[in-house]
Design a binder for these strands. Sequence first.
DNA 1: ACGTTGAATGACAGCGTTATCACAATGGAA
DNA 2: TTCCATTGTGATAACGCTGTCATTCAACGT
Lengths: 346, 346
Amino acid sequence: MARAPSGSDRSPATITDVARAADVSIKTVSRVMNEEKRVRPETRARVLEAAQALNYRPNVMARSLAAGRPFLVGLVYNNPSIHYVNAIQVGAMKRSSELGLHIVMAEPDSAENAITDLLQLAAETRLAGLILTPPIGDAPGLIDALLQADIKLAVVAPAAARKQVAQVRMDDVRAAYEITQLLIAKGHRRIAMIKGPPSHGASHWRATGFSQALTQAGIPIDPELFATGDFSFRSALAPTEKLLRLEAPPTAIFASNDDMAAGVIATAMKLGISVPERLSVVGFDDSPIATIVWPHLTTVRQPIAEMAARALDLLVAGDGEAEAEELAFDIIERGSTATPPAFVKK
Amino acid sequence: MARAPSGSDRSPATITDVARAADVSIKTVSRVMNEEKRVRPETRARVLEAAQALNYRPNVMARSLAAGRPFLVGLVYNNPSIHYVNAIQVGAMKRSSELGLHIVMAEPDSAENAITDLLQLAAETRLAGLILTPPIGDAPGLIDALLQADIKLAVVAPAAARKQVAQVRMDDVRAAYEITQLLIAKGHRRIAMIKGPPSHGASHWRATGFSQALTQAGIPIDPELFATGDFSFRSALAPTEKLLRLEAPPTAIFASNDDMAAGVIATAMKLGISVPERLSVVGFDDSPIATIVWPHLTTVRQPIAEMAARALDLLVAGDGEAEAEELAFDIIERGSTATPPAFVKK
DNA sequence: ACGTTGAATGACAGCGTTATCACAATGGAA
DNA sequence: TTCCATTGTGATAACGCTGTCATTCAACGT
């Protein structure tokens, strides 16, 4: 008995195989796979059956070559906070699989290389677009260069609004304002801030919200109480030590993200300053590290994963006009904040 | 004056554009781009110049369709340790850009879905192969299913050796043995271990090395001193508390990775047990968290990023026979280990 | 002078898919 | 009954590239 060409073939089945099996033309198979109309139900069923039997999956490369329709999306990041990156990835991947897209990662080592790298990536893969996450979304000239090359863009948490570019953000100013208010409400008056790197738009907004809250409470802004980190744990160490060794040290420190807040706590601990008894600490992001350090961090829950997911949506939906979307945040109070020591005396 | 078709065209230049500009056939352009021989230097120069002028980048999709040569590699992970995943990504991305490949991420939510997801990914994108990282590399049936679908595989730190599959590992048994010896050398005799999840091969090997060191030092193995986590920070909390509340609590705890070791320290801190004075802690991985917690962790430096990079190498090099490679580790002593309290009395 | 060789190049057929257009079959209106 | 939409279907040409094989041309040996 001659062996029929059964299913256990080597290389993946192609559209031709399915067409042959279903006794139709490849175009009909294509129609069925793309859910086009004008196919008789019984023909459709026959094709689907054949496809199933052969375990057929359209080759996305051929598909995108022929249709000009992309199947890849670039996710660009370059953020020292590993938790932030992870959240971005998780959010983007979840949505991408729902959309039938695949994600290629790009992590340019510097803003200068970013332009070249990303142009190359886009030219090579003809991808649907790029999702830029902080801080690359704010790299000067980058967006212009990419736009000029006709690459669709969605930017997560950009520093400034831009026409022609889809954007997903949250109200950093408001969030920083509210969490600073929380410290003020507890009685803190001498509050320091460890700002994020100037290259991140968010750094600026958070500092603004912080200052607004102080001003509104009638607390003078003391330049001595501002320091800057790069959003990494380590970058907060030295600045914190300097702050805590001040003649009049702060009773609370607002770190621009949780990694740095963890650095603040570590430094305080090293100097024998107990948190929250003698120093309150707040962070930003509600990343996993917020509940890893002890005490747990009072922080702002930022919907990072969701922002990435929405950015993807905007990217693929993006017909012409760039949309901007704003997601909500939450203030999460945990153990790292308390009434300041001076407060009880007063 | 009629405008010549200048460089600022819309869609990316194709091989035909370059061929026309350089006044050669597309095949010659192809030859130049692929650095084949048999092209006159001056022709090559002319083509390169035209390509440069048009900012031409070969379309990888068309390329891989035509040549059957892939340009994507799948990186599969599903690991609760964010630092581990990050290190894997960093290593893989670095090498992939050197190799001219792009990485698509896959994070199956469960071992069951993994097979379907990965088969689909592979069929759709015709990728060069998959890099499996723990614990998916050990998911039962997965490797067989993928192998049967003719997908090339490289596994990082697999539980057991497999023919036909490239592997990169380190000597977990030896590393665990050595770091346990370090504890023993300091005078610890009552040492607990928080094992990793049984789904990870490494969990088993590390426990083996641990037991070997104890046995060799003549210390009896006490089942009471073994606990199990899932490699996440949180999973170490409850087991540690249970260990420390034992009638005869351990003077040292060996956690199977750094995240869990951080959990051990956090728990000890919560219970008012100072590290390393009353409890020594060692971890495994030397992930960033090792120097974020206080005291810093004594741990095993595992070349995670490099393992991923080597896995990629093996994947693309892989001609027939599966190779296995073993990378070196280092023991890093930091502040979380000290002489046990009982030891001074003796 | 005449093959013979080998280097340089080009024509053209795929790769697996979608898009365009033509064609056959059906059904209703004239 | 004839004609024209309408619906379902199939040839066949792209898409941008590589592989195969043919072709051209100069240089060499006899």
